[in-house]
C-alpha cells in the first residue's frame, strides 16, 4: 500500500530534472507523445516489423532525460496482464501459419501476440516518459492553455494533491484495524461498510475544512496565467523532427528498406 503512493510521487520527483527534454515546452511534449501513440496504434495487427523503428523514441528520450529504466519497466509489467490475456487468445484463435523458420511454423496469432505486447510497451513508455519529464504544474498549465475549463483543472490538481493526504488517513485506519484484529491482512467484508463509510465521512469533513482554509486565503475560481508561453527554437526542432519521423515511419516501411540494404551487402 505504501509502495503505491511512493510510486505516484516518484515520477514527480523525476520531472524536476534539467535535461534537454525537461526544458522542452510541455505542449510540444504532449503533442509529440500523442502523434507517436496514434501512429503506433494505427498499424494493423501483424505489422511487427513496421513498429520496430519506433523503439528509438522511448530509448533516446529515456537516455536524454536520464530517466531510470528499471522504474518505468516495472510499471510496464504491471500493465501487462490484460493485454497478455488478449494477446494469448490471439495465439489460440488465429492459427494460420505466417512463415516457417528452421522447420518451426510460426502462426499469425503468435505474430500478433508480439505486436500487442510491443505496442503496449511503446504506448506505456510514451505516457510515462511524458509525465516523468514534465512537472505537474506544467501539465495543468498546458491543460488550461488547451482550453480545458478551470473547474476541471482545479479539480484535477486537488485530486492529485489529496491522494497523498487521504492515503495517510486510510493507511492509519488500516493499521489500527489490523492491530485490533490480531494482524488481519485485509478488512473483513462485514466491516467494510463502516470502514469505508468512516473514511468517506472523514474525507467529507476534510473537504469542508479545506474549502474554508482556501477561502480564508483568497481562493476564487480564476484562471491564473502560469507556465511558459512561447515556443523556443528547440521546441520547434524537437517537435517537428519527432512528428515527421513518426509519420515517415508510418508511410515508409523502414524495416524492409533496412533489410534490403542488409541483403544487398550480404
Amino acid at each position: 500500500m505504501k509502495d503505491k503512493i511512493r510510486q505516484l510521487y516518484a515520477l514527480e520527483q523525476l520531472s524536476g530534472g534539467h535535461s534537454f527534454v525537461h526544458k522542452l515546452h510541455p505542449a510540444v511534449k504532449l503533442l509529440t507523445a500523442a502523434v507517436f501513440i496514434i501512429t503506433v496504434v494505427s498499424f494493423d495487427r501483424y505489422a511487427f516489423g513496421r513498429l520496430i523503428p519506433y523503439v528509438f523514441y522511448p530509448a533516446l528520450l529515456m537516455a536524454l532525460s536520464e530517466t531510470p529504466y528499471s522504474m518505468l519497466l516495472k510499471r510496464f509489467l504491471f500493465t501487462l496482464p490484460f493485454c497478455l490475456f488478449a494477446g494469448i487468445s490471439n495465439i489460440f484463435f488465429d492459427r494460420a501459419s505466417a512463415f516457417a523458420i528452421g522447420g518451426v511454423t510460426v502462426s499469425y496469432g503468435v505474430v500478433s501476440f508480439f505486436v500487442i505486447v510491443f505496442r503496449v510497451y511503446l504506448c506505456v513508455m510514451a505516457v510515462l516518459l511524458l509525465v516523468s519529464v514534465t512537472p505537474f504544474a506544467e501539465i495543468t498549465a498546458s491543460m488550461r492553455r488547451l482550453g480545458i475549463p478551470a473547474v476541471f483543472v482545479v479539480l484535477f490538481e486537488m485530486t492529485y494533491r489529496y491522494i497523498g493526504v487521504l492515503f495517510e488517513e486510510a493507511y492509519s485506519m488500516v493499521t489500527a484495524y489490523s492491530l485490533r484484529s490480531g494482524g488481519a491482512s485485509g478488512i473483513g467484508m462485514k466491516d467494510m461498510g463502516s470502514f469505508v463509510g468512516q473514511l468517506l465521512l472523514r474525507s467529507f469533513d476534510r473537504a469542508d475544512r479545506v474549502y474554508s482554509a482556501m477561502k480564508c486565503r483568497g481562493y476564487a475560481l480564476r484562471v491564473f496565467p502560469r507556465g511558459r508561453g512561447k515556443l523556443e527554437r528547440r521546441d520547434w526542432i524537437f517537435g517537428s523532427v519527432t512528428c515527421l519521423l513518426c509519420i515517415a515511419f508510418r508511410i515508409i516501411d523502414a524495416n524492409a528498406l533496412f533489410a534490403g540494404i542488409f541483403r544487398g551487402i550480404a
Binding site: G188, L199, L200, F204
Partner: peptide, 22 residues
C-alpha cells in the same frame, strides 16, 4: 470543487483498501 477533488482522492484511497471476500 474541493468536495469533488477530495472525493476523487477518496476513491483512490478506497481502492487501495483490499477487502477479503469470505
Amino acid at each position: 470543487i474541493p468536495v469533488m477533488g477530495v472525493m476523487g482522492a477518496f476513491v483512490f484511497a478506497a481502492q487501495m483498501i483490499n477487502f477479503t471476500i469470505p
